[in-house]
């Protein structure tokens, strides 16, 4: 028995940077976070901002439906063939971490069908503060929380808040209405994350997703370097 990767057919190992034909695959970025924090809205805004410069596709994860994919389709952020929905059953975190089969299949199918692609965004189903993506599925991950979910979330930590490659604190426009202290959230996040970046966004404002898009561009530059 040997673990070489030269067998014919589909790749046996998920994290390989090359596709079976030897070309470089797309950069895969995961977006996770609690229910309602703005993951789908962030994906939609990223697609609108980046789609003219980059070839993009999206994989959505929902527990029982295809809501998120349908939202993206309704809003026409990408042509339908560039959006794939994965239904995860009752375990959204299992599908992005413990058993990534269905999501890997979706990203590979997208690359085969509409590639070559520069970027694939994989949006997890809404979950809790422990959700993280497997390194076998994505190259970098964004964790999205929001101001209205409580300004103590960054302090509470958890793997999503502390280890994600980018932490997005969304819906800053709501802070005055829900009594959240943005300064405290930023300080707590910095304390939990050390050098890892944090951005505060309000997707309602013009180019609200700008800081996230800039981060994605930097990731892509590093990936293709």
């Amino acid at each position: 028995m040997h673990l070489d990767h030269s067998h014919e057919g589909p790749a046996a190992v998920s994290a390989d940077a090359a596709r079976p034909d030897g070309t470089r695959r797309a950069l895969r970025i995961g977006l996770g976070g609690p229910v309602g924090s703005g993951k789908t809205a962030t994906v939609a805004a990223l697609c609108r901002t980046l789609r003219d410069q980059l070839s993009i596709a999206v994989v959505t994860n929902d527990i029982y439906t295809r809501e998120d994919a349908e939202f993206l389709l309704r809003n026409a952020v990408l042509p339908p063939e560039r959006i794939q929905a994965v239904e995860t059953g009752a375990c959204p975190h299992t599908a992005i971490r413990d058993d990534i089969s269905a999501n890997l299949e979706a990203v590979e199918d997208l690359e085969e069908a509409v590639g070559p692609l520069d970027l694939i965004l994989v949006e997890s189903g809404g979950d809790n503060l422990t959700a993280t993506f497997s390194k076998g599925l994505v190259d970098a991950q964004v964790f999205v929380i929001d101001v209205a979910g409580g300004d103590d979330i960054p302090r509470k930590g958890g793997p999503g808040v502390t280890t994600a490659d980018l932490l997005v604190i969304n819906k800053t426009d709501l802070a005055p209405y829900v009594g959240s202290d943005l300064g405290r959230m930023a300080r707590d996040a910095a304390e939990q994350r050390g050098e890892l970046p944090v951005v505060l966004t309000s997707l309602k404002s013009a180019d609200g997703v700008g800081p996230v898009a800039d981060w994605v561009r930097a990731q892509l530059a590093a990936w293709t370097a």
């Binding site: 040997h2 067998h7 014919e8 057919g9 589909p10 046996a12 190992v13």
Partner: peptide, 25 residues
Amino acid sequence: RKLGRQLMRAARATWPSAELAALAA
């Protein structure tokens, strides 16, 4: 077939063999 394809990936990573590779191809 979807589940067969997903199992194939895990199988080839855990117990690679020429027979599995041939069926995958």
